[in-house]
Design a protein around this nucleic acid. Sequence first.
DNA 1: TAGATTGTTAATCGATTAACAATC
DNA 2: TAGATTGTTAATCGATTAACAATC
Lengths: 209, 209
Amino acid sequence: MGAENSISPFVVKRLPRYYRYLGGLIDKGVTRVSSKELSEIMNVTASQIRQDFNQFGNFGQQGYGYNVQYLYDEVKKILGLVQHYSMIIVGAGNLGQALANYDNFTRRGFVCAAMFDSNAKKVGKKVNGIDIFHSNTLECYLEKNPTDIAVLAIPETQAQLVAQVLYRHNIKAIWNFSNTELEAPEGVCVENVHLMDSLMTLAFNVRKR
Amino acid sequence: MGAENSISPFVVKRLPRYYRYLGGLIDKGVTRVSSKELSEIMNVTASQIRQDFNQFGNFGQQGYGYNVQYLYDEVKKILGLVQHYSMIIVGAGNLGQALANYDNFTRRGFVCAAMFDSNAKKVGKKVNGIDIFHSNTLECYLEKNPTDIAVLAIPETQAQLVAQVLYRHNIKAIWNFSNTELEAPEGVCVENVHLMDSLMTLAFNVRKR
DNA sequence: TAGATTGTTAATCGATTAACAATC
DNA sequence: TAGATTGTTAATCGATTAACAATC
């Protein structure tokens, strides 16, 4: 119901956390929760919880609170987790393989169909059942297999170049683990994961204690 | 010079990005940059750049701008990257090994001294030159080797338990890759990396295009 | 009905941006 | 000196919190 465009990125960033906590409540057998209860568990204000959800619809009931399962399902829909996403991983190094082995992604509907690497020694092998192809077959693959999300687990020197290939073949989104920020054309989503940045933030906070 | 306490987390989160871009400029041989030039490269406002840096001191010069190397060094100091941090990785699964192989951490002063795993098959092996010890030797290790940062690359079911051990032995910070949020005692920094959350955010944005 | 809790409007707080005097 | 650009104050914008009428 809410104006699905113009949702603040702050709200969006909080959605997966709600989803996680609601899932936890379901596992515990909790069927009903008020914004106040949830706020205490999650350590945020009840006001923020109600504001956030009401960006998307009226999921609660006065005097009762929220039905946990219903709210969970709604958040799932909002996040777009009711559909499947086809995914490839570019870069079969340590990180690429770690991600390929992470079965949680598959469970949530992010299905990794192929991996690519420029190292001939890796080509032909499998990681968690996923074939590793040579990078120079990437274009050919994408032509035959429209792909939603490409995971970039390659060095920054190659990232921008590979991204260009992906853009040409209408990739919808890039999950970027390389140490660069990609320039993305209109309509392509890029989510950067800067592990080094995260560790530096930690260093800053440690020293400031 | 700035009141080093009470720096907004928004500013802190931006510091590593500045550090990255300034490093890039140095690599390109750029010696001098104005807030306006930097703002165009980084796609933020010049105002924000000046505000951010002035939380920590006056690093620029009117009419000139900023000396890139000097500013880079100052940000390095602010982030606390002039010292070394002793680190251990708990969990030698795919992700733990991927992190152990990531030499960038060492280059920046985050030195991984040991890994721990509860799988006896892995104990005794090395990853990137780092010994894997059995998890039940963790306490003993920490007593002999004071450690700044523990990386948690273990399933959520074990995370809170291991964290308790770490707290008892005065760990300073936890870099948490497990799918939980840890309750940390006063004085311990926790930085959560929720890869699944990041991917969900991407899914939301893809659908909204 | 009385009690509880939502949905939503209004108030507050803080982050970002704009403006400009200081000064290199 | 004139031009450029900072450091910093003031204005704006938006996010968060508080308050409360609506209603289950």
